[in-house]
Amino acid sequence: MLTILFDGIAYGMLLFVIACGLAVTLGLMNFVNLAHGAFAMLGGYCAYVLVNVYGVPFFASLPVAFMFAAMIGLLAERTLYVHFYNRSHLEQVLFTIGLVFMTSAVVDYFLGSQQRFINLPAYLQGRFDFFGVGIGKYRLLIILVCALILIVLQLILGYTRFGSRLRAAVDDQRIARGLGINVNWVFALTFAVGCGLAGLGGALGAEILSLEPHFPLKFMIYFLIVVSVGGTSSITGPFLASILLGIGDVAGKYYAPRYGGFVIYTIMIVVLVLRPQGLFARGTSK
């Protein structure tokens, strides 16, 4: 029972790390980015190639995965995404689905369609008992890393100059521009960091999330759920939503494997219908 809770939290933490970048693009920049999972997949494959083909240590591959996804994210933002900021949601949807299809096919072409596993170092395998609760070492690592990321993110958003610029740009773009903040650059950087975090999450969670070319489509709905249920007014909303989703999903798969997906989608619809602003949002949007 507690083990399920633990696994669920690990899963939820992963979802959060991947989806928090999406919370910014979707919620703050009002951009429907269905391709967010593609960046997570790229990070995952980057780590896979490094660890399994070149024998790089697992921990060393994580920052590389982050940088790789972030660079590609920045490149995509500056060359492609930037044309779509003022377009309709439909055009954004078409464009990002197109990106997803293309990345899936490219990954399929170079790395094959089967599921890939990253060779974990021996000290991350297995589990130990902690007061009767079985704790997987790998999942413990995920929780620790993700918690660290969460704290760092909170500190950056709350206490740095960049954080206050981002919050200003999000609250009111026009006034932020008027105050001399380079909103485009703030958004581009945020987008890149969001993609980087997605890549890091993808690398970290390759074992749990099953890395294969159709990863972005499979998890697209999960990331969207996290963002739409959690709302976008803070980091805590998506965080709570992803923990809930993680626990719900793991528990659902464990106790009622036949109805797991069904329950989650239904809950999502109900939440969206009752509270279009998100479960934890504080009221009005712009």
Binding site: L80, H83, F84, R87, E91, Q92, L94, F95, I97, G98, L99, V100, F101, M102, T103, S104, A105, V106, D108, Y109, S113
Partner: peptide, 16 residues
């Protein structure tokens, strides 16, 4: 196998 790539490409071009 890679038909998907061309659908994606068409989508991006059309959206652009």
């Amino acid at each position: 196998q890679y038909w998907e790539f061309w659908i994606g490409f068409a989508l991006v071009v059309i959206a652009l």
